[in-house]
């Protein structure tokens, strides 16, 4: 019985950690599908986290907090979209600057909010203190968890089954061909980048309004980078990314529990494993699938319309 509760606790923590990573990764997946690489996930999550927290502290209105968090991260991502999509500058460089700017700007914005108490918190669907079976764990999750599942199904459906999604992928696969089909490459990429930012913002709001929940500098602590790794792990597919999120989330949840379970394994080394696994998967896929890792063909390459 005790063991069950512990196990369920681990599962619960896995789902919570995984949800955060998954939502950010899903957003990045959408952005990358359009051919834009945005390395600024860490910065975008930060912006979403701090703005959501600020609104929550000041208004106590959860819905508004989530909305503002998502919107500001999306607006922040539009900076990357402007620089890379409209001005055709290097995506790697712009993404890295976005990270630095996001982290420092959110620290400045949130300076007065460090240590502040939240008047509200994102609730669970059903409150169960110590869930004792899988069913109880699954129904006692945070609302954001169910939203994440909905977003996963919706994203997979939109990308594969709708005209909008197929066109988005077309732009990311071959922007010149997409252009010749009359699709607006710039607009598509701009939208995809902002949507990706919005997802990161949602992950950020979840971080400060439920997962942790408080605000402090650099509290994203590398989760944005994990999200980037997850997209690769998931082969740019929503469902496989979700599996990856569970694995990465599991490891995050496992680390603080290792000692209580009596394992000699260093928690710090366990934390490295997802990255190592991702690298191995990437290499194996590249070798055995002839480079077909699932990455959009046009990723990172700016689109120019031929003209004189």
């Amino acid at each position: 019985m005790m063991f069950d509760i512990q196990l369920m606790g681990l599962l619960n923590a896995t789902l919570q950690a995984g949800t955060l990573l998954f939502i950010a990764a899903l957003g990045e997946l959408i952005t990358e599908k359009s051919g834009i690489l945005n390395l600024g996930v860490e910065g975008m999550i930060s912006i979403g986290a701090v703005t959501g927290f600020m609104v929550a502290v000041n208004t106590g209105n959860l819905f508004l907090s989530v909305l503002i968090g998502v919107f500001s991260a999306s607006l922040f991502a539009s900076l990357h979209a402007f620089v890379t999509v409209i001005l055709k500058q290097d995506q790697t460089v712009s993404g890295l600057i976005l990270t630095i700017l996001g982290l420092s700007l959110s620290a400045l914005l949130g300076k007065k909010y460090v240590g502040k108490k939240l008047p509200v918190k994102i609730e669970s669907l059903i409150e169960i203190d110590e869930p004792s079976n899988i069913f109880e764990v699954l129904i006692s999750q945070n609302y954001i968890f169910y939203l994440g599942i909905f977003l996963m199904v919706a994203t997979a459906f939109v990308l594969k089954k709708t005209m909008f999604g197929r066109r988005l992928e077309a732009v990311g696969e071959d922007s010149r061909a997409a252009d010749s089909m009359g699709l607006n490459v710039n607009k598509t990429q701009f939208i995809a980048t902002c949507v990706g930012g919005g997802f990161s913002g949602l992950a950020g709001v979840y971080l400060t309004l439920s997962y942790v929940p408080y605000w402090t500098d650099n509290m994203t602590s590398g989760r944005g980078w994990i999200a980037l790794a997850l997209v690769i792990f998931g082969g740019w597919k929503p469902y496989r990314t979700a599996v990856g999120a569970l694995l990465f989330g599991f490891l995050e949840a496992l680390v603080p529990r290792l000692q209580t379970y009596g394992f000699e394994l260093s928690p710090y080394l366990v934390k490295i494993t997802p990255y190592a696994i991702t690298i191995i998967i990437l290499i194996v896929l590249t070798i055995y699938k002839g480079g077909r890792t699932g990455a959009p063909s046009n990723i990172g390459i700016p689109f120019f319309r031929e003209n004189r």
């Binding site: 790794a229 290499i283 480079g291």
Partner: peptide, 15 residues
Amino acid sequence: FGVNEIITTLLFNYI
């Protein structure tokens, strides 16, 4: 093998 170096070098930071 032609594995994208942007991703592998990035991941190595965390390792």
